[in-house]
Write a protein that binds this DNA or RNA. Structure first.
Lengths: 114, 114
DNA sequence: AAATGGGTTGACATTCAACTCAATAATATG
DNA sequence: CATATTATTGAGTTGAATGTCAACCCATTT
């Protein structure tokens, strides 16, 4: 399972929705040449917020593309920045170098909170 | 209780360790005038990594100062960026807008993992 | 008084992400 | 083929973050 690049994945999604680079670019509010470049991995993926917009326009959840870039939407970053408790959690987690499985367990426990 | 500023807190720590601005700056690798400015809140707090260096030099844990700025060290950000499972967790958490208490609970559960 | 050590200030510099713009190439369509 | 649409590429721009540099001030010591 070939790790597809961000660009290639985006290109596939866009084409599957029958949207041109220009249409996408206009709707998102960036230059079409920029779309071309990120699709061909000539530039690093866009800012997290731009990725979110792209996914909105294309009608897909942003999670996959965001995960590929290791970026977090401004909204989430800010939410964490304002929460020392969240930061403490993250520092702990970092110290423990959690595995994917452990993160999944935590996600489960998270959902049980409500 | 007055929320002390980042600058004021740093100045207190530095003085308590009997270190001059210039000594600190040299050890950290920045200009001494920069230390002066952040201590007097003339500039925003330094980058997270610089805060960590400062704390290393002063021999204190960086957690408090980092928490005041809402910044996360590169190391932690990278660790999360590389872990889709961690990102999923964070997105879930964001959607739920956790309270401080809930974050604490999660931190407890985190510690129980090992 | 001159030098020294410490601190402060204002203006300017550097770096990087995240784009835009102009030109050119490729591709589809009449 | 012709031409319109679409995609690609190189060069340049912009703003924010993160500092540096040179020139000071003030207090203490020599």
């Amino acid at each position: 399972m070939k790790n597809k690049t961000f660009g290639h994945t985006l290109k596939e999604i866009r084409r599957s929705k029958d949207v041109t680079q220009r249409q996408l670019a206009t709707a998102v509010g960036v230059d079409f040449s920029y779309i071309s470049k990120i699709e061909n991995d000539r530039m690093p993926p866009p800012a997290a917020d731009t990725i979110v917009k792209i996914c909105e326009v294309l009608g897909v959840p942003p999670d996959d593309l965001l995960a590929m870039t290791g970026k977090m939407p401004t909204q989430i970053k800010e939410a964490i920045s304002e929460k020392p408790a969240a930061q403490e959690f993250l520092r702990e987690a970092q110290n423990m170098t959690l595995t994917d499985d452990e993160w999944s367990i935590l996600t489960q426990q998270l959902k049980k909170l409500r």
